[in-house]
């Protein structure tokens, strides 16, 4: 299979199931609130941190330029900073919010040192190089100032950014997940079986069939 993003579940929109027996009232309430999140809303991060964060999340979970309403990943991370944490932290990292502030400052400092510009102003290839170095633990000590880049990446960036992205219905459409399922649940459990309220995968040459089936998941 391809290692690029594809339109594997053409026409599938998990939100079409919103008013079906797969979604109960409390689920509608929770997802509605998520969809109503202001993509530019941030009250934890400063404007400078926000610019770096937005550029960073675009490299971790890139979204197609054609997407009219991108998943507001940065706003979801900002929201997380204002809620309960994960229930633990690795001893080498400071608490959640402080780790993020120092990590974003370190990325900005790396960009400044390497390119004389701010992280969100440099090219994506340059951004990727900085991210890759951080992930491999090769951050420059002057920039990271005692924050371990590898741990920052694996214990802060990954859980906060990746899990935010895959908490959003638009991401569920992309991977063909059935989404909320209460109270209806599922019936067809075996190999290659699909309930009519699940996403249909486009087999080569059968894209239109999948599109037709996906149009019916909300009925």
């Amino acid at each position: 299979m391809s290692n690029e993003r594809q339109d594997l579940y053409p026409g599938y929109d998990v939100l079409a199931k919103r008013d079906t027996p797969s979604w109960n009232e409390q689920t509608r309430e929770v997802i509605d609130a998520r969809l109503a999140l202001d993509p530019e809303g941030h009250s934890f991060f400063t404007d400078a941190e926000w610019a770096t964060l937005k550029a960073l999340v675009d490299r971790i979970v890139p979204q197609p330029a054609s997407r009219t309403a991108p998943i507001p990943v940065a706003a979801m991370v900002d929201e997380k900073m204002r809620g309960p944490g994960d229930g633990f932290r690795i001893a080498s990292l400071p608490p959640m919010g402080e780790a993020w502030r120092r990590g974003l400052a370190a990325l900005a400092a790396e960009a400044e040192e390497r390119h004389g510009r701010r992280f969100h102003e440099i090219g994506t290839a340059e951004q990727d190089a900085i991210v890759r170095d951080a992930k491999e633990g090769r951050g420059k000590e002057a920039a990271w100032a005692g924050l371990p880049p590898k741990e920052f990446f694996s214990h802060r960036v990954v859980p906060d950014v990746v899990k935010s992205y895959y908490a959003h219905p638009t991401a569920w459409n992309e991977i063909g997940w059935g989404g909320p399922a209460s109270p209806r649940g599922y019936v067809r459990m075996d190999f290659n079986r699909r309930d009519p309220w699940e996403a249909a995968e486009a087999k080569p040459g059968q894209e239109e069939k999948a599109r037709r089936e996906n149009r019916r998941v909300g009925r």
Binding site: N3, E4, R5, V61, K135, E174, I175, G176, E201
Partner: peptide, 16 residues
């Protein structure tokens, strides 16, 4: 697995 960027979103598409 250490995936991020386009490699991550592409691999996630093989979820099913």
């Amino acid at each position: 697995r250490g995936l991020w960027g386009e490699a991550l979103v592409a691999e996630m598409q093989r979820y099913n």
